[in-house]
């Protein structure tokens, strides 16, 4: 076996050659390992016999462009995910249904530089894609509670304000804060305080819709963005959250710790910026705190007067 042939079969990437009719002429061992289709089975037959999903306008367009221009085509993982539907190998199976691939396609030339066939290189980038996905999650999440972080909230808030104004839809915001949280820390210790933060966040997270956005805004302060929601429904939700937290208790090293929350609600108005919307919810929250805690206050010009 020639040296190049040995390399062809032992490199840790997939190598395929197709003739101008898109019949397979070369199929390396890597492709066999991941597809279960041996070279003897596939060489000589159309690539579409074994991979009918490749028979798509996009793939054909790329083949044509390689054959006609001698162009290279790059199938990035980000846009295409994969060309060949292989199972992921290793421990990434739970994250991706298919092996994530970065593929390159280009021309092979014979005599007189005429293009006789197409080569395809297949690289397994599942591991990288897994890290990327993890990193992307970490950038938007609060490490302790798993809810979104403030940075993400601010981005979402800007985007939602713009979207809701453009389409004249209603958008509400709930700011909430755990009552006497300092006392929890002082009495039961910070680990217990962390437990309480986690269970409050989990409780609220399970009560809101998927399209809503719960973020940890500060220490024990959370903010919940409610797209397509008017102030009446936001108030009802806030009340439901209040009762839910009031009813639950967190187990900390054998002790049951109970907390309550105060909530402030505001709705996007014509002249609002993201900042003024936040500020009004915050003022309503302050009013809820000032008038006894464990309650919901909706910002209305008459009920909340700036000091």
């Amino acid at each position: 076996m020639s040296e190049l042939r040995q390399i062809f079969d032992t490199v840790n990437i997939g190598l395929v050659v197709l003739d101008r009719q898109l019949n397979v002429t070369q199929w390396n061992r890597w492709m066999y390992q991941h597809s279960g289709i041996a070279s003897e089975q596939i060489v000589g037959s159309s690539i579409f016999d074994h991979f009918p999903e490749l028979d798509s306008p996009g793939f054909l367009k790329n083949c044509r462009s390689v054959l006609a221009f001698g162009n290279f085509s790059f199938f990035s993982q980000k846009l295409h995910r994969f060309l060949f539907p292989f199972k992921p190998v290793g421990s990434f199976g739970s994250k991706f249904e298919h092996m994530q691939q970065s593929c390159t396609m280009g021309p092979l030339r014979g005599e007189n530089q005429t293009i006789t066939s197409i080569f395809i290189v297949v690289q397994d980038v599942t591991e990288l894609a897994t890290y990327e996905r993890k990193m992307a999650e970490m950038v938007v999440r609060d490490a302790l509670t798993g809810s979104y972080n403030r940075r993400h909230l601010e981005e979402r808030l800007n985007a939602e304000c713009e979207r809701h104004r453009r389409h004249a839809r209603r958008l509400s915001l709930v700011m909430l804060d755990i009552d006497f949280f300092k006392a929890v820390n002082d009495t039961h210790g910070h680990q217990c305080g962390d437990q309480v933060l986690k269970s409050v966040a989990a409780g609220i997270g399970s009560a809101i819709r998927k399209s809503d956005c719960l973020a940890r805004y500060g220490g024990e302060e959370f903010c919940c963005l409610l797209p397509e929601t008017g102030v009446e429904n936001a108030r009802a939700l806030a009340e439901q959250l209040r009762r839910q937290v009031e009813a639950m208790s967190t187990n900390c090293q054998g002790r049951e710790v109970k907390v309550t929350i105060s909530l402030g609600v505001s709705e996007l108005a014509g002249t609002d910026t993201p900042e003024t919307l936040l500020k009004r919810a915050d003022e309503a929250l302050y009013e809820a705190k000032r008038t006894g805690r464990n309650k919901v206050i909706v910002f209305e010009a008459e009920t909340v007067k700036p000091d």
């Binding site: 996009g58 221009f69 162009n71 990035s76 980000k78 846009l79 995910r81």
Partner: peptide, 30 residues
Amino acid sequence: SDMESAFEAEAADVLERETLMEVGNILIGA
């Protein structure tokens, strides 16, 4: 049509970059 299958989850700026690369590849190649 090629892009519809691409994930909605991917951020818009990522999609934009990848699109620029595909278009760049086609134009430069041609």
